[in-house]
């Protein structure tokens, strides 16, 4: 099973240290939400985990091997990263976008094998975008495009899946769909780590939340602990409304403190 270990990780952006002394362990099958106010360093942590930002000290290990020792290709095979937003610069077909997820598995000038094609089919099926195969992604709705880009990241079939605010700009229905999909990935043994602002979705779907504040790890535990009334006050300076529906607890930000 995949094991991700962070030990005293510091991440600078330019001359400023944005993340300080972050340590935690996570393993395959967990669905972890990164929570905290704007500017706390959530996206920075997501990028550092995807080895898009260098650490200045400390180490990030995957199954005991330091991330810095991975070649870009090996790192790409092990960590799928879903960026914030829905950037696609050209009007490409949905399938050709999803197929880009297989690039880490193909030689620079090689073409996708049958196994790669099958992985693309699986990813498209899982994200319910099979019907868009030949459609121009720029003509799809925001929610549909988000699912295509999610399928692109799923197609990597990496043991670790990092997502930076995958539901940030989506309507409730698409947001629920995406969270259910990520939950399913975790159930299949993938370690899923996602930056998330929607606390109701975070409490419902994640097993564990890591709260960041001013670039430091403020709390790490199950949702009811991290987003307890005290936690809501400490991390967000808001009062939360804690409730349950269908036997599942959730929290809504209620009023600023």
């Amino acid at each position: 099973m995949t094991c991700l270990t962070l030990t005293n990780v510091h991440v600078p952006i330019g001359s400023r240290t944005v993340l300080r002394d972050i340590s935690f362990r996570a393993s395959g099958g967990e669905f972890i939400g990164l929570v905290g106010p704007n500017g706390a360093g959530k996206s920075t942590l997501a990028k550092a985990l995807a080895s898009l930002l260098p650490t200045s000290s400390g180490s990030i290990n995957i199954n005991g091997q330091c991330l810095t020792q991975f070649s870009p290709k090996d790192s790409a095979k092990n960590i799928a990263y879903l960026a914030q937003g829905d950037i696609v610069h050209w009007p490409l077909s949905a399938r050709s976008i999803v197929a880009l997820g297989r690039r880490p598995h193909i030689d620079a000038f090689g073409s996708p094998s049958r196994a790669d094609q099958a992985a693309v089919d699986r990813a498209m099926q899982r994200a319910f975008v099979g019907e868009f195969t030949d459609r121009d992604v720029t003509q799809l709705s925001g929610g549909e495009r988000a699912r295509v880009l999610l399928a692109r990241a799923l197609a990597v079939e990496a043991p670790i899946f990092i997502a930076d605010e995958p539901v940030g700009a989506l309507d409730p229905r698409h947001g629920l769909n995406i969270m259910a999909l990520l939950r399913e990935e975790a159930n299949r043994g993938v370690l899923v780590i996602t930056v998330i602002h929607d606390l109701a979705l975070a409490t419902r779907y994640c097993d564990r939340l890591i709260a960041l504040r001013d670039g430091e790890l403020a709390d790490d535990g199950p949702p009811h602990q991290v987003l307890s009334p005290r936690g809501m006050a400490a991390h967000y300076a808001v009062e939360g409304h804690h409730a349950a529906h269908d036997g599942q607890a959730f929290v809504l930000p209620w009023r600023p403190l």
Binding site: K47, P72, H89, R152
Partner: peptide
């Protein structure tokens, strides 16, 4: 440059996460 340009249509961060140098 050809194969790299395809990945780059997803933006630089996504492209790098797919192993692009």
């Amino acid at each position: 440059c050809a194969p790299s340009l395809d990945i780059l249509s997803l933006g630089e961060d996504s492209a790098r996460s797919l192993g692009l140098r």
